[in-house]
Amino acid sequence: MREWAAKHRWESILIVVLAATIVVNVSLSPFYLGFGNFVNLFWLSIEKIIVVIVMTFVIINGEIDLSVASVMGFSAAVMATLYEGGEMAFVLAILIGIVAGALAGLLQGLVITRFGLPSLVVTLAGLIGFRGAARVLLEDRSVGDFPEWFERIGQQTLFGPFPVALVLFFVGLALAWIILERSAFGRKVYVIGNSADVARFSGIEVDSVKVRLFVASGTVAGLAGVLFAARVGAVQGTLGETYELDIITMVLLGGVSIFGGSGSMLGVVLALFTVLNIRNGLGLANIDGITQTGVIGLLLIGSVLVPNLARRYRLRRPAPEAMAHGPP
């Protein structure tokens, strides 16, 4: 136990924070403990946390994808525009929407690897560009009135009390966990994140891994955009705006280094649970939106400060273990 805690410092801290959050929530609101609320807690942020899974890979790989929220909006806008045209089977419109997300990811991945440009800059352009495309497609309209079965996907339950998107999230999470921490591909993601040059000399196809991650990021963002549309029953050009911040916040809070090369899926899951529980608890306690934003902001500052200060402190002491960046 103590050994595990020493090896997983950040995860241990998160467990304590999460436990404290739950205790505070229980004491603040009698409505917190309840199965319905537990489902709502995930469901209200489901699109964000689905994208968090893939963002974890991207950041561990030493890159960042600021365009995810815009790609969500773009995919949903493509789907809505095709649907509105009325010529096409809606299923096809959904698929094309998601493929549009994948292509957005592919384009950015290729620009980053072929031209050696920083992903921060390229995906910032993507953030602006794909949002612009979504706004151009939909102008100022709100497209809704989707077929009933589509809205049911977003709003009704599939297995027992779980909406489809929630099932997708947990299945995706399990798969991602295995791929990141138990597969050769996951190992490459860490190695590249630690040093792309070392990875290249070791014969790892760095560019290919990066492009595949950006395609995955675009695809998942596209899927999340479609799920968002199904959940709220309407698509606007602003769909998902600023979500990239919440998504990246959860990944960083999970102890994933913004410099790449380190972090664990467990940490991210704990961070995600913590953020969702804090939001839910504050909401149920009728704390206003401004304070909620403030609390999450403080949490973010803490999450980037603490690990970096700790790392600096550890690096000053010549302890060999301090250099170990990889997964457990």
Binding site: S195, F259, G294, G297, V304
Partner: peptide, 21 residues
């Protein structure tokens, strides 16, 4: 690559904090 991310990292962080707050 590492050096580059040293520069970019804090930038991202600052941007995020500003936006979140």
């Amino acid at each position: 690559n590492k050096r580059r991310s040293r520069v970019l990292g804090p930038l991202v962080v600052v941007a995020l904090i500003l936006a979140a707050c």
